[in-house]
Design a protein around this nucleic acid. Structure first.
Length: 460
RNA sequence: GGCGCCAUAGCCAAGUGGUAAGGCAAAGGUCUGCAAAACCUUCAUUCCCCGGUUCAAGUCCGGGUGGCGCCUCCA
């Protein structure tokens, strides 16, 4: 299997540190709000990577963090903790907010067929590990104390910026971030913050009451669960310049050697060709998609059509196209279920091999999906093709065994009634009325199919 | 200003130097209500532009142009 390593900017052959085993750490959500579909794209990438590794017979130790403390509103180590801000706005405690949004997040990823990592680590459950990490960095001379916290001294870590290929000298210091006069270098980042009395989340430390910096959690928890050197670390591309750069600095300063072999990053999702942001009101949630008649599987299928390292442009039209295609794919798979034709072993093997070749070539899901289409869209009908499709779904995770008709019992009565009225209109040759009802049903997300056996309907 | 990514049909999008996957849309056909849905068929001599390397370039190199992202909360 080859995977693209952000650190070297090359595809590299995966060589597990421990033969047959992979240690995988994936940056998880900050649970101060709902995760939007752009976030979800990154977790879909995580899931496809995970499935690929498992299918290759590798044993996984997969860790994902839940950030429930320390992630400040600004990367300049200033401003409010996101958790406290979210809590204040909602009139709840940060703990309640964390629990609430963690639950929603878990439900969301489950609905997308994203497998939950074996180890889900909450930052607040690992304060002692983080404190120990920070103390060691201070002892080693990489951390220093200011009036508001403990900071990492980038000046003592010359290779800083390797992952993002940033040259700190050329960056505009304090372009948008207020310069903290006490910091030795503008890019020095907080390992631990001293808590003002009103700060709700705070813990005792050698430097008084405080709370951890955002970056330290990933270094401390990955070290705890995966050891001093592990195989793969993933996250969104936005984490390359600051978060992951800081992780590398902290971990390597502490350990004296590298901690991660392969860094992988999922690209962003765009909306209508531009960035997704809350201020533009285009940071859609799965629930927004649902309101417009799209299921999580439609979205998963949509994302399966682009490679994880390329930006994917989200538009409602494109999603509608994905829905149509997805339903046709399910129907095509179903059509093979009871088929008795024999496709020939060579053909089946070829599809199977090409499919996995694509998957193992830096997780090329869109290419693999194309191969599935080719396997499924043949004039013959064979249960062997059906079996093949379902086995390949171990990677795709698209619920390919499902029937394209998704019943919606709570709506059945109204729909059946409308269909009956439409049938009456058709019998009376009032096709204008019949079409009006049909269009109304379509707006409700119900598609009709007139067959010799009567009217069938499906909801997508 | 600095860093980086990307440019393939109306749209989305794969593509490991060897002759352009797949999907949506569209057009034609079957069926039908001169319908929808479904199914079948068709649909890029060409990959932003200009040079170069090569027997061979969408794929490599150089230079343009354009788009986007990051450097500021972000997956």
């Amino acid at each position: 299997m080859t995977l693209y390593n952000t650190l070297t900017r090359k595809k590299e052959t995966l060589q597990p540190i421990t033969p047959g085993h992979i240690g995988l750490y994936c940056c998880g959500p900050t649970v101060y709000n709902f995760a939007h579909i752009g976030n979800m794209r990154t977790y879909l990438f995580m899931d496809w990577l995970r499935r690929a590794l498992l299918s290759a017979g590798l044993e996984l130790t997969h860790v994902m963090n839940i950030t429930d403390v320390g992630h400040l509103v600004s990367d300049g180590d200033e401003g409010e903790d996101k958790m406290e801000k979210g809590a204040r706005e909602r009139g709840k405690t940060p703990w309640e907010i964390a629990e609430e949004y963690t639950e929603v997040f878990m439900r969301d990823i489950a609905s997308l067929n994203i497998a939950c990592p074996e180890i889900v680590a909450k930052a607040t459950d690992h304060i002692p590990e983080m404190l120990e990490f920070v103390q060691k960095l201070v002892e080693l001379g990489y951390g220093y104390e200011t009036s508001d916290g403990i900071y990492f001294d980038i000046g003592r870590f010359p290779s800083y910026g390797e992952l993002s290929r940033l040259n700190l000298e050329e960056q505009q210091a304090g372009a948008r971030v207020e310069v903290n006069e006490e910091k030795r270098h503008p890019a020095d980042f907080a390992l631990w913050k001293k808590a003002p009395p009103e700060h709700i989340m705070q813990w005792p430390s050698p430097w008084g009451q405080g709370y951890p910096g955002w970056h330290i959690e990933c270094s401390a928890m990955s070290k705890k669960y995966l050891g001093e050197l592990f195989d793969i670390h993933t996250g969104g591309v936005d984490h390359i310049p600051v978060h992951h750069e800081n992780e590398i600095a902290q971990s390597e300063a502490l350990l004296g050697h590298k901690a991660v072999n392969t860094w992988m990053h999922g690209e962003f999702m765009l909306v209508d060709g531009g960035k997704m942001s809350k201020s533009l009101k285009n940071a859609y949630l799965l629930s927004d998609l649902k309101e417009r008649g799209f299921t999580p599987m439609h979205f998963r299928f949509f994302c399966a059509n682009a490679h994880y390292r390329n930006k994917l442009n989200f538009t409602w039209d494109a999603l509608a196209g994905a829905r149509t295609a997805y339903n046709r794919l399910l129907a095509a798979v179903q059509a093979h279920k009871d088929g008795t034709d024999r496709p020939g072993k060579d053909a089946l093997t070829a599809f199977h091999d090409e499919f996995y070749e694509a998957v193992y070539d830096d997780i090329n899901i869109p290419k693999a999906l194309g191969i599935l289409w080719n396997a499924v869209r043949t004039p013959i009908r064979s249960h062997e093709i059906y079996d093949l499709a379902l086995s390949l779904d171990a990677i795709l995770g698209l619920s390919l065994g499902e029937s394209p008709e998704i019943e919606a019992p709570e709506l059945d009565t109204g729909i059946e009634e409308l269909i009956a009225r439409r049938q009456a209109a058709r019998a009376a040759k009032d096709f204008a009325e019949a079409d009006r009802i049909r269009d109304a049903l379509r707006d409700m997300g119900v598609t009709l199919e007139d067959t010799k056996e009567g009217v069938k309907w499906k909801k997508c």
